[in-house]
Design a binder for these strands. Sequence first.
DNA 1: ATCATTGCAAACACTTTGCATACGC
DNA 2: GCGTATGCAAAGTGTTTGCAATGAT
Lengths: 146, 146
Amino acid sequence: MPVLKEMSVAEITKLLQEAGVSPSIQRIKILQFISVNEKHSSVDKIYQDLVSEIPTLSKTTVYNTLALFVEKKIINSITIDNTEILYEQSQKPHAHFQCNVCNNVIDIDLSSSLYGIKKIENHKVEKVNIHLRGICNECLKNGSMK
Amino acid sequence: MPVLKEMSVAEITKLLQEAGVSPSIQRIKILQFISVNEKHSSVDKIYQDLVSEIPTLSKTTVYNTLALFVEKKIINSITIDNTEILYEQSQKPHAHFQCNVCNNVIDIDLSSSLYGIKKIENHKVEKVNIHLRGICNECLKNGSMK
DNA sequence: ATCATTGCAAACACTTTGCATACGC
DNA sequence: GCGTATGCAAAGTGTTTGCAATGAT
């Protein structure tokens, strides 16, 4: 799991090949953008930045490439609240556990040092969001692995 | 911050009035659904459940009502990964801090008990997602409060 | 009569799909 | 030449907006 930090084209090419991904110019540039320019990259940022260099680039390719990279474990997707879909009652902060099999969301009580935290590394914390994924108790018992 | 647990229509009505929200039948039913039927409710679940009872109900009203409830702090919105927008390099798990002012996402290193956790309350943990929101260091200094 | 609430229809933003074209060994 | 990669256009999904109809006081 190499850390991508201002890697050269040669290094990125090698990394892609080792992951079993053929190193097209689109793939190299997209991975380079993520590793060098932006630690947190959106599809649109990547597209807007690279389309001047590769005028025929399409967003479809960006989507395809990112999905491929996630599948090959070259990058992770992270969840930041974009459009909000789920709602719950006001209650004390807690973690949400979502099962990969049944998709149910289960509240998890935690007494982590995160809770009630007001300040971290000089940033003012207003909301803590913790989201766990995995396989829930019930589904483990049923042996219904995805 | 009352906990809504199988509240009666009368209790919900009172709660809405205390929050300065006039208690229409739509609002009562939506809040009742969240409090009684579903701890984690999506717009669609709410709509599908209530449209049989209130045939003229529209999704717009569900959206409007939920936004109003969040604004009035009657409910919280929670973030579960829906469509993935941001991507980052593979690296050790960490928390993400997103600033309410500049929207930048900043990595937060934490040595919480959550990290490296493999099992919690008998659920198998495959992915830990922690998302903090607030105002970042830089924006606090600039005094550019939203 | 007035003001708030509702809800249809259209617009929107983001993502995925279908398929034809282009590329690389 | 054949299999893979790319990318346009269209469709799909979830949410928001504009505005007219309805409801309450």
